[in-house]
Design a protein around this nucleic acid. Structure first.
Lengths: 145, 145
DNA sequence: TCTAATCTCTCTAGTACCTATAGCTTCAAG
DNA sequence: CTTGAAGCTATAGGTACTAGAGAGATTAGA
């Protein structure tokens, strides 16, 4: 049996994150020791590793919740899992496309900077006037850096 | 003078977002009409357009705050703005690299799916076992889809 | 002029996915 | 037996908004 710290170490997930996953119902409530500490078996480790890997591939927690319930049901068709994975792939492709457009716009902007004063700074000017841009690098939220 | 709705329409920013920007001090508090409604001039429109454009290029609000205070000070050196833009470019490049790795991993995973049952589903299996992966598509938070 | 539709106001809470803090208890090693 | 690490709960914070409630303001048309 693993304590939460060992489990986290084995799966590469931080301890508060494990407690968070339990809180939102992604991990089942584990046994407790006499002193009220969580104790995990190897099934919990598998499940957590699955979650971590899916997160590393960018799947949102809700998609992971669905994938987990599919994997709990081995007789079911694979199609649903396939759909989720394809949605994720599409999301990733979309983000790459947007970021690539941003990258070229930023590169253009920076290349034009003559290192003078703000008054004739291209960076500031380009930001202030969208018509300087070649592309419609517009919509869609970008995640944090 | 523009009402908040007109301003939002002109700049392409939603009304609650404008109020939010005011709340966090990114936009100055505007005049009010007799009926307590916000009234904006063209300077506010410029500033809001600047913010929107910088957001579209993925700059975080804190970076935009810095860029705005630079642009309020036209005699200053352009170097600081250049640094901020280069940081943003580096962040964008990093995200593209990570997403590109994710994309190939997802493509590989999906290509292997034989559309059988969950029991032999490659998607589920690959997620459950990182050793199936070629790359270390690991770290770094990804933003929402 | 009245009314109905639209806009605006403030305030609070919720989204995604954790991370950090505070103040406490339990456990393992020396 | 003591000390320090690891565990516990609960709450708040971060990013950049978005949604909703309930009330007041403004405008267009009849």
């Amino acid at each position: 049996m693993l304590t939460i710290g060992k489990l986290g170490g084995a799966a590469g997930v931080k301890v508060p994150t494990i407690r968070y996953y339990e809180q939102i119902g992604l991990l089942p409530k584990p046994e407790r020791s006499a002193g009220n500490q969580r104790l995990y078996g190897s099934k919990a480790l598998d499940r957590l590793a699955f979650i971590r890997h899916a997160r590393a591939l960018g799947f949102p927690l809700e998609a992971i919740r669905d994938l987990l319930s599919l994997s709990d049901d081995p007789g079911q068709s694979c199609a649903a899992a396939d759909v989720i994975a394809k949605q994720q792939l599409a999301a990733v492709k979309g983000r790459i496309a947007r970021l690539t457009a941003l990258r070229s716009e930023l590169e253009r902007m920076i290349a034009q900077c003559a290192q003078g004063t703000i008054a004739d700074c291209r960076v500031i000017e380009v930001l202030g006037d969208h018509s300087h841009c070649t592309q419609d690098h517009d919509p869609g939220r970008e995640g944090p850096a």
